[in-house]
Design a protein around this nucleic acid. Structure first.
Lengths: 359, 359
DNA sequence: AGCGAAATTTGAATCGATCCAACAAAAATG
DNA sequence: CATTTTTGTTGGATCGATTCAAATTTCGCT
């Protein structure tokens, strides 16, 4: 009697059921996790009692400790959680990750925190078997934090050169060269670059110094690709303005203001992300400039939105979904090895690029 | 010596550190979870040894069992995981949920499975403090499954009338009436309804019988709202075709084919979701029909895409983000009470509706 | 009835931490 | 110097399950 009333207070445990049914925990456990090895009669009795006592089934918290595997991968970023649902690039990437997880029945845990300490705590306490890291702003800190967990993880976008971390990215140099060559062949000679960050919390025109000491080699490689190709066309890359943004509205617009405030206005913009490219199209149109009539733009990434803009965006497309799939699989069937994969890019010519205007 | 070598084999536990440092496991635990109460000297020694032995920090799996709280909410649906990143409605909802979670530092675990058994397992084994359920197709099963976990949960979209489950939804009747009145006032007299499901796995024209025995009362209410208002304008609702779709491309197009294959073609379409409405606009344009010249359309939901279509969609907007926020908060600060909230809708007139064509 | 094989059941050990009452040592007080 | 207070440390209990070797029961067969 008393025990029944006491039971009310806190959730029923498997042990309570076992006691009530007069079987050992072992058997009670088997009733739920391996019913086939329990005698039918016992099984039904235990199940009935569990039902009657309002047992919620074996608590995953307990099981987890024993099993050791969570069967979920964590996807982490330093952006707020909503980034995963807002950002076009992230969304396509998540679709790929989702696919791989769906296929194996694994779950996805979203981990994030703009705030420093919380990020650390969230990474430390995430219940996952491994991490996929979106290495954007603050990527190196994210990697350091994650490394501490000593769980498998993959960095997306090959954020930095550390050869000891698994990563998947694209051939940035090749992609950037494609973009630059395309514009150069269209006759453009005055360029500007809307750049991603070379290090955290930078913004503004990038000096050669900044470029040389880049933390994010992805950014550096793209720039190198642009410049290599431009040089081949006899362009003095030292005169090409490179504006470092935070890949969002505000700093990108600031960059455009700064670039177009200079004496030599560009006729072609090389943007290291579609996001910036799209913002640039908007900005230029608002300024009464024609795209691609006055200014041509090439993006980088290949997000779906690029196909919908007016004009549609010419861009270097990454196999985003495939990268996501592979990243997830790297965690799901992790074998202890460090893998670094470089995927190819695809050049998509759409409407945002055209011949250089006759000056 | 031997112990160091043995340690290599499996991950280091807090107990190993304690032993190596010559302190009790209680103290070792404190070093990590409440460092301020440990004498500085001891603290540093233990930390040094932990570092040296390659300890990954207190394992969340262990902590979890003790703490009881996961600090994460599960978001579940019967759709594949990618639904969360693809579907516009889901994305806006997730943004709201993200916001609430970010504010309290809680995590989000995505749970899904198209497959029956896996869904059950995924729900049973999700490490979360509660669930937010996307009750679309298969919503009742999802609720039943979740109820078993005996964790707090909220159903989105007021899928069904069961008063014992917490839910947040909108005033479907009021919203639907707004839509119908608008069209009727524009002079339309021949209507068709693109309907969401009344029960699982239905598709095709809905008979009064189907409507009466609806599992999804949200759908039923919207239809009731439409019909109530149409009746007031003297329209015989018995003659209005109601086509039940699965809220995706294929069945919606099938519905349009079926509707426009009838003798009396509608001049106005009431769609129970923006998704269907947008598909309808596409379909009609492809058929050479002008929207809203020949056919007017009103959607339901108020997803961002609706503002971008050509013509932009007139719709009944739900406060989607706010619903998401509230749902998450209901779980986060759960007090044991069953809450059912009904939010108001906003009528947004855009370009997809116009005066009825002169017949 | 007797016996070995097969099918079930048991209960202790384990997973990896946190909590807390009790104790010990050091510091403050009279 | 004796006594209280404060500050740190200890180790057992607990969270809720699963696992596995050993013990027990059941069953088929002679």
């Amino acid at each position: 009697m008393a025990s029944l009333l006491e039971g009310q207070a806190r959730p029923i445990r498997l042990a309570d059921i076992a006691k009530a049914a007069g079987v050992s925990h072992g058997t009670a456990s088997n009733v739920f996790s391996r019913p086939e090895i329990v005698r039918a009669e016992v099984r039904e009795r235990v199940k009935a009692i569990a039902e009657q006592m309002g047992y919620a089934g074996p608590d995953p918290k307990g099981r987890l400790l024993r099993a050791g595997k969570v069967n979920a991968i964590g996807v982490a970023t330093t952006e707020p959680l909503s980034y995963f649902f807002d950002d076009p690039f992230a969304r396509v990437m998540m679709a790929g990750i989702s696919e791989a997880c769906d296929a194996t029945g694994a779950g996805i845990a979203l981990v994030s925190a703009a705030n420093q300490e919380k990020l650390a705590w969230n990474i430390q306490s995430a219940l996952v078997d491994g991490f996929v890291l979106f290495c954007i702003e603050g990527g190196s800190r994210l990697v350091d934090l994650t490394r501490e967990r000593k769980l498998p993880f993959v960095a997306l976008e090959l954020g930095f050169q550390d050869e000891t971390v698994s990563a998947i990215g694209v051939d940035n140099v090749a992609g950037a060269r494609l973009a630059a060559r395309h514009l150069a062949e269209l006759g453009h000679r005055r360029f500007a670059v809307l750049s991603l960050g070379f290090a955290d919390d930078h913004t503004g025109f990038a000096t050669p110094e900044v470029v040389r000491s880049a933390v994010y080699t992805g950014t550096r490689d793209r720039l190198a690709g642009y410049f290599e190709e431009l040089s081949r066309f006899g362009i003095d890359t030292a005169t090409v303005p490179v504006y470092e943004t935070e890949n969002e509205e505000k700093s990108t617009r600031a960059g455009l203001e700064a670039i177009f405030a200079r004496d030599e206005r560009p006729t072609a913009i090389l943007a290291m992300s579609d996001r910036m490219a799209l913002i640039a199209i908007d900005w230029l149109k608002a300024r009464g400039l024609n795209v691609p009539g006055d200014v041509s733009i090439v993006g980088f990434d290949g997000v779906p939105d690029g196909a919908l803009s007016t004009p549609p965006l010419t861009t270097i497309a990454q196999p985003i979904t495939e990268i996501g799939r592979r990243a997830a699989r790297m965690i799901l069937d992790h074998d202890g090895a460090v893998r670094r994969e470089t995927m190819g890019v695809e050049f998509i010519v759409r409407g945002s690029t055209g011949p250089a205007p006759k000056a």
